[in-house]
């Protein structure tokens, strides 16, 4: 079998005395949606930060499209096609929605008009068409999440890293966003998503990695993983009930 689009091998990161990620290994196959789940504080965001170049791993390697990209800076990785969203949304608050997205679009479009046109098109796709000239600061939580997605998409990524894009949304908003993610995948973008909303993980992803206390403790198709006693154990007292309920559904 060909090498996966992304391979993370034995990466570790500690902050002071805290081992946030401990020799984690995972991969993302081309064209698929891969999920990364785990309790709060497991190290998921830190793992994403290492893949996207914001944090340098203490050890281990990250390979993407057959090349070693360990320690490359974020802007170069973005150029290579790795885009990420932030768990805590980071809009350019003083810019309009269109200008926000255009920053991403500029990576593939030199001219201002071309970038703005691309931004407009993506905003419409993402359901932000009515807000184009609103300042990003005026958006609702759901709007900001969509903006985060739209900006990342504007860079025309091959691999999209989504950090809890559904967190903080109400059930009807989640129902609206799930098909958006499907549509992104349908365009040929490979996705790796951190998610707490288990229904979404079940319905969207083909392969799930489970991180707990910095280690990958289980992986496989969603149904199998959710029945895995180690996983239920890791979630116990936290989301065990939710997870098992979702697994049964």
């Amino acid at each position: 079998m060909a090498e996966p689009l992304l391979t993370v091998r034995n990466v570790s990161k500690h902050f002071g005395g805290l081992q946030a990620v401990d020799a984690a290994t995972l991969f993302a196959e081309e064209g698929r949606i891969t999920a990364l789940i785990g309790p709060n504080g497991a190290g998921k965001t830190t793992l994403f930060a290492m893949i996207s170049g914001f944090v340098r791993p203490d050890a281990g390697s990250v390979r993407y499209e057959g090349c070693d990209i360990t320690g490359a800076p974020p802007h170069e990785l973005a150029r290579l096609g790795i885009a990420r969203t932030f768990q805590i949304v980071q809009p350019f608050a003083g810019l309009t929605v269109r200008e926000n997205i255009a920053v991403g679009a500029h990576m593939r479009h030199r001219g201002r008009n071309a970038a703005l046109a691309a931004a407009t098109a993506i905003a419409r796709e993402m359901g932000l068409g009515d807000m184009l000239d609103q300042p990003a600061a005026a958006l609702t939580v759901a709007g900001r999440k969509r903006l985060e997605l739209a900006r990342a998409l504007a860079t025309q990524p091959k691999l999209l890293l989504l950090d809890e894009v559904l967190a903080g949304l109400n059930p009807s908003e989640i129902r609206d966003v799930v098909p958006v993610i499907r549509a992104i995948q349908a365009r040929g973008v490979s996705i790796m998503m951190i998610e707490h909303v288990m229904q979404a993980v079940m319905s969207l992803s083909e392969h799930v990695f489970v991180l707990a206390e910095g280690r990958i403790i289980a992986q496989g198709p969603p149904e199998g993983v959710s029945a895995d006693p180690r996983v239920i154990e890791a979630y116990l007292g936290h989301g065990a009930a939710k997870l098992t309920a979702a697994g049964a559904a």
Binding site: P74, H75, A78, P91, F92, A93, G104
Partner: peptide, 16 residues
């Protein structure tokens, strides 16, 4: 202006 508004977000979008 993207760097002014949010440097990390800008870097994630390919801005050096």
């Amino acid at each position: 202006t993207a760097v002014r508004e949010n440097e990390d977000a800008a870097r994630a979008l390919g801005v050096d």
